[in-house]
């Protein structure tokens, strides 16, 4: 399993649009599962509604993890997404 923690800097947090984009990114690695954890709640990054439901805001610290055959690529892509968009 690969993981990183990230502090959200986007003033609007993970709202509908970035959540949708993140879900798209996270879906792109077949059997590799990407998860986002905030305050002990973990959701699959591929599930848009769950992701929105986390209510991640600016200043929140989230832990992002990837597990599966393509976890290296997945974690790199997702980390890139966070740094660029969130």
């Amino acid at each position: 399993m690969k993981q990183f923690t990230y502090t959200i800097t986007d003033p609007l947090g993970i709202h509908a649009r970035p959540a949708g984009l993140l879900a798209k990114v996270a879906k792109g690695f077949g059997d590799t599962v990407v998860t986002v954890t905030k305050d002990g709640t973990t959701v699959k990054a591929s599930q848009l509604m769950k992701l929105m439901g986390l209510g991640v805001k600016q200043g929140n610290v989230v832990t992002v993890a990837a597990e599966g055959p393509a976890e290296e690529e997945a974690i790199a892509a997702v980390e890139e997404f966070f740094r660029t968009n969130l």
Binding site: A16, M49, M52, G55
Partner: peptide
């Protein structure tokens, strides 16, 4: 309803 955005501008 799976998710009402906290800002209420979107709904899942």
């Amino acid at each position: 309803v799976t998710n009402v955005a906290e800002t209420k501008h979107a709904i899942g």
